[in-house]
Nucleic acid binder design. Sequence first.
DNA 1: TAGATTGTTAATCGATTAACAATC
DNA 2: TAGATTGTTAATCGATTAACAATC
Lengths: 227, 227
Amino acid sequence: MSKQNTPSLVVMKSTLSRLPLYYSYISRLEAEGMESVSSVLLAQHLNLNPVLVRKDLAQVSSVAGHPRTGFEVKQLLADIDNYMGYNKLDEAILVGVGSMGRILLTNSKFAKFGLNIVVGFDKDPYLCGLQLEGKHILPMEKMESLVQRMGIRIGIITVPDDQAQDVCDQMVKCGIKAIWNFAFVPLKVPEDVLVKNENLPSSLAVLAHNLAMKSSKANKTERIAEN
Amino acid sequence: MSKQNTPSLVVMKSTLSRLPLYYSYISRLEAEGMESVSSVLLAQHLNLNPVLVRKDLAQVSSVAGHPRTGFEVKQLLADIDNYMGYNKLDEAILVGVGSMGRILLTNSKFAKFGLNIVVGFDKDPYLCGLQLEGKHILPMEKMESLVQRMGIRIGIITVPDDQAQDVCDQMVKCGIKAIWNFAFVPLKVPEDVLVKNENLPSSLAVLAHNLAMKSSKANKTERIAEN
DNA sequence: TAGATTGTTAATCGATTAACAATC
DNA sequence: TAGATTGTTAATCGATTAACAATC
């Protein structure tokens, strides 16, 4: 039944990660009065393979596309909406109201994508009791009761690295089932808890490295030839 | 020679994205006085397959591991360092000194990963001339000369979505060759420019969706059986 | 020697792309 | 009908995992 080495960390890129791109672009088309959109057009604008787009849409669309015209814009938006769960607005809590925590807590774009960060927690007594754009900041002690009362299952960790595991443990104890981790430490969690690491420095390191690789490509080819 | 549909956007996950994790963990071991580390140990702590770790290390390590003891800690750190380019500190500029821009501009962790964000640009005249933890904020007009004078090749976009393409174009014009994009729009760039999109709302949407999938797994299995 | 670990070759898995028939 | 587009089946590609011989 259970695979031997399955980590509790799940990635699941692909379709799901492209859906917001489609949604965003199709919304724009809708605003411009367009009634239908083809996979070809989407693919061009988003720099993707049209077949890939078609497969993605096939997964989420409730109706088939029309051979000559493509997909109906309104219907498609509704379907993506529905598939991503945009409309049943998931709720989350956030721990660590530092600068990154504040961005997430106050960024209205998250709401547009179906996520409502209900409240922020912090251990700093001077922050507790304050509000940021309507979002309350509460002391850590209130976390358990709030999470359980509201049945919240998603937690966001934006505390310093050395406190992340501790906060994570507390979240798990409260019943949190998915954690979005901005600290740069691998979290230990029970098998049934999902962890998604957001690793900004690492992302940038990858970009810088790719750039370096690309620049040295010509040279490398020569070297291989020599070999 | 050139593949038909290759987008200029490069992902290159895998090894490269795990290197910082290794580095971080091995650093800790070094601080604790350990002299060698095995792929098995690394794998356990980072929730990875040991063979995968070994393959990753084989790519970066300048010397082979020792059959019974593993890899020498100091050597391995130096090799990862070197491979990622941590020590030759890449330089970047940032455009859009809003809340996200400020985080990146002032986050010391980036420096540790080999990236120095030299300066921030903003079109707001009230911001220009200010400093944030030693980082100057300059008007957009100064971008071109500074980028060219310093030979900077990495640009970070943290402006509102509707200005992203415009800023991107300016960067390209200055000679920027890699762009880290925090705006939620697909950027159009020439073939030789790398783009890496950082898409927070989307990441979270994926996490929430995965959680929902997981929860409904039991039910789904039943439904399939019924089918 | 026995045991832990390494590195490599082959198998598996999942995602993307190519090829193509079907539709309006 | 011709042409643009769809959806599907098979091929390709890359990354991960399994199996195993080699080493200290």
